[in-house]
């Protein structure tokens, strides 16, 4: 590779010359939410362990999770999970060599993005109404 550059040959185009597409953005967000969920499993494990180890640990976890920062992180986790879920379904469709027409790929991508966000807000609205807050 280094020899090619030294020979003064043109480099392949860099990111900034590409036009924004929803499929491109969704690809990046899919990976970011995946990495977020990877870290988020620590929270899931901590929650289960706190419930396993006794009321003191559980209440500590609940008080941290119930703080504004904890709630923000948990909303982020919910959104990452639902977004990654709907976004990932597109890949399962594409694996079967379906939905590759540009229009369909765009519709699926926008659909997954909107569904992921709407479902996250819906889940949290339901959670607050169940707790009688909303």
């Amino acid at each position: 590779m280094a020899e090619t550059r030294q020979a003064g040959r043109p480099l392949s185009p860099h990111l900034q010359i590409y036009r924004f597409t929803i499929t491109m953005a969704m690809s990046i967000i899919h990976r970011i939410t995946g990495i977020g969920l990877y870290a988020g499993t620590l929270l899931l494990a901590a929650w289960l362990l706190s419930a396993a180890l006794g009321p003191d640990y559980y209440n500590l976890f609940q008080s941290v999770a119930g703080s504004w920062f904890g709630q923000l992180v948990l909303f982020g986790f919910t959104w990452a999970l639902l977004h990654h879920l709907f976004s990932g379904m597109r890949y399962l469709v594409w694996d079967n060599i379906r939905g590759f027409e540009l229009r369909n790929a765009d519709i699926m991508s926008w659909g997954a993005a909107v569904l992921g966000f709407v479902a996250s807000v819906g889940v949290w609205a339901l959670a607050f109404s169940l707790r009688g807050v909303l």
Binding site: Y58, L81, L92, L130
Partner: peptide, 28 residues
Amino acid sequence: TALALIPLALFLIALLLALSGADYETAR
């Protein structure tokens, strides 16, 4: 695992929803 996680992730969200703000006894 992706296929398996479609229903399982929805189950997890339902569980977390049911246990959001739950006390220790309820969670156990």
